[in-house]
C-alpha cells in the first residue's frame, strides 16, 4: 500500500523504552492507526525504527465518563468529544527492528525514539524490505510478548505483509513465514495450535 497516507504522520511519540513505544493521535485521526500494521519512526540522524501496532487505547476523562452515564447524548456532543477535545488515542507499538545507514536489522535499536518523533505507516516496499530481511528474526519480539493477543497480532501482521508481498514477486514469503512460525513454536503446542487456527481464518 503506497499512498499519500504513508507520507502523513499518524501520530507523535508520547513515551518509549528499549522494546516498545507509545504514540498519540487525536480521536478524529482514529481511522489511521490499524492493529498489526508495520510503522516506523524516522530519527533525525536518518535511522529508522520499525514496530508493529500491538494495541490502540482510547482514553477517557471525567467529562466522557459523565457523558457515558447520561441518558442520551446529542450527536453534536459526541462529535465535540471526538473532534474538538484533547483526548489522545494511544498507539502502542512493539519495536521489531531498525534501519541504520540503509541496512535493516531485526535487533532492537541502540536507543529508543524520542518524544514527539513522528510515526508513519511503512509503504509496501518498506514492508517487503523489512520482512524479507534475514529469516524472520523479528518474530521473536512478537512471540516474547506476554498478556497480549500474540496470535491476533501475528495474523494481522501476516495478512498485511502478504498483501504487500503479493504486489511484488515473492509469493513464497507467506509460506516461509508460516513455516518459520511452526519451527519457532514447535515446543509450545498450545500456542502453535492457536496461531495455526488463527491463520486458518485468512484462507
Amino acid at each position: 500500500m503506497t499512498t499519500e497516507q504513508n507520507l502523513i504522520p499518524i501520530g507523535k511519540l508520547l513515551r518509549a523504552d528499549a522494546s516498545s513505544f507509545v504514540a498519540g493521535c487525536r480521536v478524529k485521526d482514529m481511522q489511521n492507526p490499524k492493529f498489526g500494521a508495520l510503522v516506523k519512526v524516522a530519527l533525525e540522524d536518518g535511522d529508522e525504527i520499525f514496530g508493529l501496532i500491538q494495541n490502540i487505547v482510547i482514553n477517557d476523562d471525567g467529562l466522557v465518563r459523565q457523558l457515558v452515564s447520561g441518558m442520551s447524548i446529542p450527536s453534536e456532543y459526541t462529535e465535540d468529544n471526538r473532534y474538538n477535545r484533547n483526548l489522545p488515542v494511544e498507539i502502542h507499538v512493539l519495536t521489531v527492528g531498525f534501519k541504520h545507514q540503509g541496512k535493516v536489522s531485526h535487533q532492537l535499536p541502540p536507543k529508543p525514539p524520542m518524544s514527539l518523533d513522528k510515526l508513519y505507516y511503512c509503504t509496501d516496499s518498506e514492508v517487503v524490505e523489512f520482512t524479507s530481511h534475514g529469516r524472520f528474526g523479528y518474530f521473536r519480539h512478537i512471540l516474547r510478548m506476554e498478556d497480549q493477543p500474540v496470535e491476533e497480532l501475528l495474523v494481522s501482521h501476516l495478512d498485511k505483509a502478504r498483501a504487500a508481498h503479493g504486489d511484488k514477486t515473492n509469493l513464497d514469503w507467506y509460506a516461509q513465514a508460516c513455516q518459520e512460525l511452526i519451527v519457532s513454536l514447535r515446543d509450545d503446542y498450545q500456542r502453535l495450535a492457536n496461531v495455526l487456527n488463527a491463520l486458518a481464518e485468512l484462507e
Binding site: 450527536s75 453534536e76 462529535e79
Partner: peptide, 8 residues
C-alpha cells in the same frame, strides 16, 4: 448548531 449533527 443544534440539529446539524456537526461538532460545535
Amino acid at each position: 448548531l443544534k440539529g446539524s449533527g456537526k461538532a460545535p
